[in-house]
Design a protein around this nucleic acid. Structure first.
Lengths: 142, 142
DNA sequence: CTATTTACTGAGGTTTGCTCACAATGAGGC
DNA sequence: GCCTCATTGTGAGCAAACCTCAGTAAATAG
């Protein structure tokens, strides 16, 4: 009987809820926090489509996430100097500041969930999930 | 750097999408399929609140899921003879029939996602996830 | 210089939850 | 029996995080 799938879903739900609780304090949803993290990680103006790709969502959905972040003054949209169709996203000072706090909260939420696991299991879990997702990507492209 | 959380979310999303594609053929959403599975597993009239508990959702949400299944004629609501406030859910013949098909599709979707994993990794993954969720439960109750 | 492609977004939908409030019923105390 | 209180399901309404389809504006190919 294969219940691994259900366990995976349950774990994801738990995680989302926890992280959500953690980020809600700053009026940011989990997916907004995730996007902000990407923008900060890029460390340079990031095309909206590039963001979408990294978040593995369609560009239209990225628009929405960025709308939310911009509304909170955490990022700004800039026209891409190289392509006037494109939009670049950069974090504001406030975005950088809050980004750090959120990162801490995220770490903490993840740690809290992963705490019951011995260090080795954590590494194994990461490795297995990477395999899983890479396998999926490999399956899709050819 | 702890990205395990993100990987987990990504995997869950993939899984949900695949399973959704699989069940959509019969006009059933993933969560309806999940609920139907629970009802069938119980093998006797099941209280709505009990269903909610097993699905780990609030009773109000269970109402909604059952609404959907009843609309498709896959389950029926019966008054609980022991408590006139309560509602019991039982699968119809059609529900049982479709339940089997869905179960197959579910297996297949899960297999498809888990295919890149060697058998041993699958077992390990299951074990780790169980640990994770048990740890969470243990954390919450005391 | 037209024709196609690409980058974003407006409009609207879906899935899967949630809370809050309420009616009907059950259960315990007096 | 009667009164209070807890429980069971549900109507109403909302939110998060996606999606598709269609359209506009700009870049690029022919």
């Amino acid at each position: 009987m294969d219940e691994t799938a259900d366990l995976l879903m349950a774990a994801a739900r738990t995680l989302r809820r926890r992280f959500g609780d953690a980020t809600a304090r700053w009026g940011v949803t989990p997916s907004q926090a995730r996007a902000l993290r990407m923008v900060l990680a890029a460390d340079e103006p990031m095309r909206l489509s590039a963001l979408a790709e990294r978040l593995r969502i369609v560009p239209r959905s990225a628009t929405e996430v960025i709308d939310g972040l911009e509304l909170h003054g955490l990022v700004v949209r800039q026209p891409d100097p190289a392509d006037r169709r494109a939009v670049c996203v950069v974090a504001t000072e406030e975005g950088v500041r809050l980004g750090r706090l959120i990162e801490e909260a995220r770490q903490q939420a993840a740690d809290e969930l992963l705490r019951p696991l011995p260090e080795e299991d954590r590494r194994t879990l990461t490795r297995i999930l990477v395999t899983l997702l890479d396998g999926r990507a490999a399956e899709r492209s050819p």
